[in-house]
Simulated assay, not measured.
Amino acid sequence: MGTPHRRTASGGEITQDVTQGYGPEMYVLPRAPEGRYLIRAHYYASDRNRASARTKVHAAIIEDYGTPQQRMFDRVVTLQQGKDMHDLLQVTRADRKAAVAR
Results as ranks from 00 to 15, higher is better:
R93Q: 10
T15W: 03
G2D: 14
R96H: 07
Q90G: 07
K97C: 06
A59I: 05
L88E: 01
M26Q: 10
A99R: 12
G35R: 00
Y27L: 12
I62H: 09
M85W: 15
T19A: 03
V77T: 14
Q20S: 08
P4T: 12
E63D: 06
A45S: 12
R31K: 07
D95W: 03
Q70R: 15
D95A: 10
G23K: 03
R40E: 07
Q81N: 15
A45W: 02
G82W: 06
T92D: 10
G11N: 08
R71P: 05
I39N: 00
A99H: 07
D47E: 05
R71M: 13
R93W: 01
A59F: 08
L88S: 03
T78D: 15
Q20N: 07
Y43K: 05
Q16T: 06
Y27E: 02
Y37A: 03
R31G: 02
D64V: 06
T78V: 14
Y65R: 13
M85R: 13
T67I: 12
L88M: 11
V76F: 09
R31M: 04
A99F: 05
R71N: 14
P33G: 01
A51G: 05
T15D: 06
I62P: 00
V18Q: 04
K97A: 15
D47F: 02
A101V: 10
I61C: 04
Q81V: 15
R96K: 12
T8G: 15
L89K: 13
R7S: 14
Y22H: 05
K83A: 11
E34Y: 00
I61N: 02
G2H: 00
L38K: 03
H5I: 09
L88R: 03
L79M: 15
H58P: 00
G66K: 09
H86V: 09
H42S: 05
Q90K: 09
Y27H: 06
I39L: 14
R7E: 15
Y43A: 11
G2K: 00
S10R: 07
G21M: 05
Y27G: 01
A101S: 14
I39M: 01
D84I: 11
P68N: 14
N49V: 00
S10K: 10
V57H: 03
D17N: 08
T92R: 12
V100W: 08
T8H: 04
T67C: 11
A32Q: 02
F73Q: 01
I61W: 03
Y22S: 08
I62N: 03
D87M: 10
R36M: 04
A41Q: 01
P24S: 04
S10N: 08
R6Y: 04
A9R: 09
M1H: 05
